[in-house]
Design a protein around this nucleic acid. Structure first.
Length: 627
RNA sequence: GGACCCGUAGUGUAGCGGCCUAACACGCUGGCCUGUCACGCCAGAGACCGCGGGUUCGAAUCCCGUCGGGUCCGCCA
């Protein structure tokens, strides 16, 4: 190896390349420009001639000796430039001394074992370095607007504007890789079980229920529009009628609503539909998949297998919402009849108005300061509560506004009901059911975090089942029924008659999959009987004209032998965010939009030309605000 | 549409009525260095403290407005 290194002369690139390739085992990552990636060289390659390409991530210049860490997606390799080795190396050294961070280099050299004691055990390639003989600047780089290093966090708006630089960082790159592995796992899993991935249209029909649609004006039909799909719901049911039997899709969905940390206007779902199934078929399929997915793509552990099933009613009662975070306990407790004790008007009034009085016991928080309690009260008020009643169980006795309204015995009953022990703080909220549950569930989450009850390596999954089919919503001051999940969800056997007598009592054949307090998916066994589907549409307040215009094709399809079927949709972005342990889906999305909906890299949305508008038969109503 | 938080060199932060002629780290420029690996050392450039108005003898600092970013509410089957 020494001889080949020292006797080689400077010569043409083509010849050098050929020589180097002949001495290198074939790397699957080899290309016309390189023989190996930056992540694969080990002590086994010592003596081989290699060609590397990559970005300058660090440069350590000693005047004579220069070290450059070269990075590509696959890893990092140290290249050493020693000008005194020979004339070629001296030339390479001159170029290296001009190179700056993020320059793209092509380095030709020989793999050498690092000097004894100079190995870097934190690097996969830390046993070796590449002694550069030739180097070529494939492209220089301007000084980057923020450091490309994991230990520095730059402003997110800046990172989004230069997303291609942000993706050179380890954290984001690893998330993108994790997302790929997760989706590949899912595709393989579904494929092994006989599912067909079928693409459904992106240009489709606007639907009245649900979120605001993104509309696409039609050039050929003046005044008419396509809509981007909020989900492939109707198509997947039609695929069941078609006899596809098992369908899935990694499907892009679009909803024109305001953004959140866990909501982007376009997002990806694992969309699944199966024929001849009941609830447990779908739930088993997804549960096995999620366990495998979590265990193969992460080192996190699953809190409980099989996943617990929680009835909607019990979830609301115990956790105050339908997506309980089971990583910690802290259950809400309904005071029930105990709220009638004493003379506390706040509690009595809530019950009078069919409201709830519920408590949350927080172990060890009795010593909370006035300021902390004021902050929590303020928090409760911003979410609609009139206030927060506290009960501190101090060693010297209870401290609470309740002591003025309840006798010591009565207060004791309340404490016992709550399971209170000395040192605990108990919060009470008395309000209508919605606000009471909402406030206490938020308080519960906050307390879980505050008390450090959350293990970041834990995944607590559960199914929430037995949802009501319908709920009442207010729209334009009028109350009407609204489908809890979607208008296609079926109902428990024998409950069809309730649709006429007491629709709110009907239980849907619906199931939601929850992980760490996030709804990651939901689905149902569907209606496949046209008459029943028609009746549900009527209950939802659709006129005959609307039913025919919007869903006539579905009802018609159901008249041609629609099999019993059901399915589910999982939010891939949220799921990968949870796998990655992140706080926002932007961190697992290659090119996300900011909260205001803008893509600051591409600068979308943007104005279009008058000519484009004319072709689409459109005229703008408002004068343009932006120049 | 609303509430709250944030905005200081390229980046991340400190400063929170006068000691600010704005500090520190990284980066950048120049110089030195043959075993570093978030190299080290020396020197230097770089900020009208987001913008506008007000209070004050005096504002990066307090108040109001505005713009930008984030979190949440509304909205999202």
């Amino acid at each position: 190896m020494t001889s080949s290194r020292t006797t080689r002369k400077a010569n043409g690139g083509a010849k050098a390349t050929k020589a180097a390739q002949s001495a290198t085992p074939t790397s699957p990552l080899a290309t016309a420009l390189r023989t190996v990636s930056c992540g694969e060289l080990t002590a086994a390659n010592v003596g081989q001639e290699v060609i590397l390409t990559g970005w300058v991530v660090h440069r350590r210049d000693y005047g004579k000796l220069i070290f450059i860490d070269l990075r590509d997606r696959f890893g990092l390799t140290q290249v050493v430039f020693d000008p005194e080795r020979n004339a070629d190396a001296a030339a390479a050294h001159a170029i290296a001394s001009e190179a700056r961070l993020e320059y793209v280099l092509r380095v030709e050299g020989v793999v050498a074992r690092r000097l004894p004691g100079k190995e870097n055990p934190s690097l996969a390639t830390g046993e070796i370095e590449v002694e550069a003989r030739r180097v070529e600047v494939l492209n220089p780089s301007k000084v980057v607007p923020f450091p490309i290093a994991d230990h520095v966090t730059a402003d997110e708006a800046l990172r989004l504007r230069y997303r291609y630089l942000d993706m050179r960082r380890d954290t984001l790159r690893k998330n993108i890789e994790l997302r790929h592995r997760a989706v590949k796992y899912i595709r393989d899993y579904m494929d092994e079980r006989g599912f067909l991935e079928v693409e459904t249209p992106i240009l489709t029909k606007s639907t009245p229920e649900g979120a605001r649609d993104y509309l696409v004006p039609s050039r050929l039909y003046p005044g008419e529009f396509y809509a981007l799909p909020q989900a492939p719901q109707q198509f997947k049911q039609l695929l069941m009628v078609a006899g596809i039997d098992r369908y899935f899709q990694i499907a892009r969905c679009f909803r024109d609503e305001d953004l959140r940390a866990d909501r982007q206007p376009e997002f990806t779902q694992l969309d699944v539909e199966m024929s001849f199934v009941e609830e447990q078929d779908i739930m088993n399929l997804i549960e096995t998949m999620l366990i495998g997915l979590i265990e193969t793509t992460t080192t996190k552990h699953i809190k409980q297998k099989p996943f617990p099933h929680i009835r909607f009613e019990d979830a609301m009662d115990r956790y105050g919402n339908d997506r309980p975070d089971l990583r910690f306990d802290l259950p809400l407790v309904n005071l029930g009849a105990l709220a009638r004790l004493g003379t506390f008007k706040v509690f009595h009034d809530a019950l009078e108005k069919d409201g709830l009085v519920k408590g949350l016991r927080v172990p060890g928080l009795a010593t909370a300061t006035r300021k902390e309690l004021d902050e929590l009260t303020e928090f409760a008020k911003t979410h609609g509560a009139k206030g927060l009643v506290t009960l501190a169980l101090l060693p010297e006795g209870p401290r609470s506004p309740l002591t003025k309204f309840l006798s010591p015995d009565e207060l004791n009953d309340v404490v016992r009901h709550m399971g209170g022990e000395t040192g605990d703080l108990i919060f009470f909220v008395a309000d209508d059911a919605k606000i009471c549950n909402d406030v206490l569930s938020r308080l519960r989450s906050r307390m879980g975090e505050k008390l450090g009850l959350i293990d970041p390596d834990e995944m607590a999954l559960c199914w929430v089942v037995d949802f009501p089919l319908l709920e009442v919503i207010e729209e334009d001051g009028k109350e009407r029924y609204h489908a809890t999940h979607n208008p296609f969800s079926g109902m428990k056997a024998g409950e069809e008659a309730l649709l006429d007598s007491d629709p709110l009592k009907v239980t849907a054949r619906q199931y939601d999959i929850i992980c760490n307090g996030y709804e990651v998916g939901g689905g149902s066994v569907r209606i496949n009987i046209p008459e029943l589907q028609h009746k549900v549409f009527q209950l939802l307040g659709l006129s005959e004209e609307q039913i025919t215009e919007q869903f006539g094709h579905m009802l018609e399809a159901f008249e041609y032998g629609a099999p019993p079927h059901g399915g589910i949709a999982l939010g891939i972005d949220r799921l990968v965010m949870l796998l990655a342990g992140g706080e926002t889906i932007r961190d697992v999305t290659a090119f996300p939009k900011m909260q205001n909906g803008q893509d600051v890299l591409m600068r979308a949305p943007s104005p279009v030309t008058e000519e484009q508008l004319r072709e689409l038969h459109l005229r703008l109503r408002e004068p343009e605000k932006r120049s």
